[in-house]
Design a binder for these strands. Structure first.
Lengths: 141, 141, 141, 141
DNA sequence: GTGGTCTAGACCACA
DNA sequence: GTGGTCTAGACCACC
């Protein structure tokens, strides 16, 4: 589930983890009662600081999406799919607004964006994937 | 030219300035040999520290988009429109990839994204407008 | 690694740091994933302001040679050795062109330049050593 | 004579002018009593501020290479060829030292530098000529 | 007046 | 403790 975390991305690692989980809930891959991988397991798998994972899980708990049972692990709450979906959606819509505005500013046309979007949907790109490296370098947060 | 800089945005001010210039070059508003507004002028107009502007201009120089002549000002390099366009475009395309991948991960459908994109293009949103930050709001409670 | 930085040089300190790193990558002393010394460590070692180091590191990031992970440090990007080598080389070649052209303009002969070059290679001069500034000296009288 | 001045170069314009004259004297293109082009003529030809030219000529006068006769113009002094040569030479030797040291730091070998130098001597590059633009951008003073 | 460089120090986000 | 960003202000080189 965490195969698309990118340590070189400008997006903070903890935020990437949070999003992964939220998107997984929104799309039904994770459902009520499902157990998240342990903090230690994730930290080892991604070779990151356990605190980073812990922070992500804590944030998710604050958002009311997961709950922890001491000694048992961390589990998805009931009835969060809808809430998570609407949150994710409004967030994504916000991002679309932003990128479309930039596209307009750079002189792109409606049809260009449509064409690209279509192609993206067909392909299997993952979020946080580094786009062509040269661009990543230029792209500052 | 700098009317869409947003001091409250999450995007760093210097990065906004860089993008403004790059998009202006990409869309033909700024051409080879054109002089950028002086560091001090921009700083006064936006009421920010001159160093912030200088940093943006310096980055643009490292990127090879502008060159500076001491005592004269800062000017757009020759033959950068195409380069800048392709850079801006690939950057935006990268972002589209990212957001579309997120949308897919969250279970959105092709048609949803298309519909939103269309609406965005019709409206007049500017980049850097803070997108809905439902989660941030939650976290701060 | 930073033993040849010269605070008295005409070359800006931050530029010297950038070059040190770039040459270190080009010559294989620094490889993909290696961690650069921290901003603060370098600043203390050289007794300069941390911002000066930060600027150098940031420039390197814009050039696509390093990436930063907040709280972790700054690391060499993958696959930059070749790029860096060719860049360093073409840069140096450019400088050689320049100095040879000047030598020709001043009436030097092929053999003169060869002889000097040979001697330089044998000696252990470091870059950024202030070259004889006969004219500067004259001007200040 | 001033066809190789490059306004985009990092080298200050006034310094380029000074060097042009000094190298021309060293190589015998300009001799005792020869008249320099007027400040206004140079300024118009290069599209630069007359003050810049005036500063270059003033510096040359301070160095004792030229003298001005009010209303007549500026002329090369007697017996400066040898002096100018030795100055130019030591300056160029300093630069060779610098670039060779950088070449060594970047892992170049003796033979590489020799080969390049030879090729440069054969070609007709002029000083201050912009090397490949991308490099120029990276190359900070 | 222009930009270039550096310092000192603040505050923030992240690990 | 790590880097990121911004401010304030200094001094210099050039035009």
């Amino acid at each position: 589930m965490l195969e698309s975390i990118n340590l070189q991305s400008n997006v903070a690692v903890f935020a990437q983890i949070e999003n992964e989980v939220r998107f997984a809930i929104a799309s039904g891959q994770l459902g009520a009662g499902d157990k998240l991988p342990t903090v230690r397991a994730v930290a080892e798998q991604l070779d990151i600081n356990p605190n980073t994972v812990a922070k992500a899980y804590r944030d998710l708990e604050i958002m009311g999406l997961v709950y922890s049972r001491r000694g048992m692990g961390i589990f998805i709450c009931d009835n969060v799919e809808a809430k998570c979906q609407s949150e994710c959606y409004s967030e994504i819509i916000g991002k679309i607004h932003e990128v479309v505005a930039e596209a307009k500013a750079a002189g792109m046309r409606d049809t260009d964006v449509k064409r690209i979007t279509k192609k993206c949907f067909a392909s299997d790109t993952t979020p946080y994937e580094t786009p062509p490296k040269a661009i990543m370098a230029l792209l500052k947060k």
